[in-house]
């Protein structure tokens, strides 16, 4: 009906031309807007993210024993066997000096890597693996609640009205290997 009324005032050719122009415009936006993939995760009730480029895999660890390594730094939860490869597991609450609360379940580990460095880091929940527009990334965000976090946060973005701090894996690797 609406199309019929429109057709009364504009020609079919004009309509086709508009549609073509709209398609071209949307194509142009898609090409210009670079996306970056991130893994969004929760620690207690706060959201953090890693760039997917630094993520090897996400594993469920609640039923796997994490073997404590006596004498290792306090932020190391232990080691775990993942398909024959022994990986370290980082306790983010100790690393980032965050307060544990009753929501700290740490059911999953994200295996992160940068250069030679590779380790798992426990998280409470994996919220999403998502694409965000490059333009949404903010540098120099000051959302950290302590100096360690301030040192390890690279960029950030806002999602569903919440701040998401992206942890910089290269800085994290340097911090751990100091």
């Amino acid at each position: 009906m609406e199309e019929q009324q429109l057709a009364d005032v504009v020609s079919r050719e004009q309509l086709q031309e508009w549609a073509k122009q709209r398609r071209e415009r949307s194509k142009t936006v898609a090409v210009q807007e670079q996306q970056v993939k991130v893994v969004l995760f929760a620690l207690a009730d706060v959201w953090y993210a890693f760039f997917c480029a630094n993520v090897r895999e996400i594993i469920e660890i609640s039923k796997r024993p994490v073997i404590y390594v006596p004498g290792s730094p306090e932020f190391i939860a232990g080691i775990i066997n993942i398909r024959g490869v022994i990986q370290s597991i980082i306790d983010p609450y100790r690393l980032l000096k965050l307060a544990y609360n009753k929501e700290s379940v740490q059911r999953h580990a994200i295996i992160i890597h940068h250069g030679e460095f590779q380790s798992g880091i426990r998280v409470d929940y994996i919220e999403e693996v998502m694409d965000i527009p490059q333009s949404a990334l903010q540098s120099g965000v000051d959302w950290a609640i302590n100096d360690t976090l301030r040192e390890l946060i690279g960029q950030g973005f806002t999602y569903r009205d919440r701040h998401v701090a992206i942890l910089d894996v290269s800085k994290l690797a340097q911090f751990i290997q100091r």
């Binding site: 073997i67 290792s72 730094p73 190391i76 080691i79 022994i86 370290s88």
Partner: peptide, 17 residues
């Protein structure tokens, strides 16, 4: 073991895992 996992006081204590 990765270097950062070694026992800080006794780094030679482990062959590995």
């Amino acid at each position: 073991l990765a270097n950062y996992l070694l026992n800080r006081r006794h780094p030679l204590a482990y062959f590995g895992a």
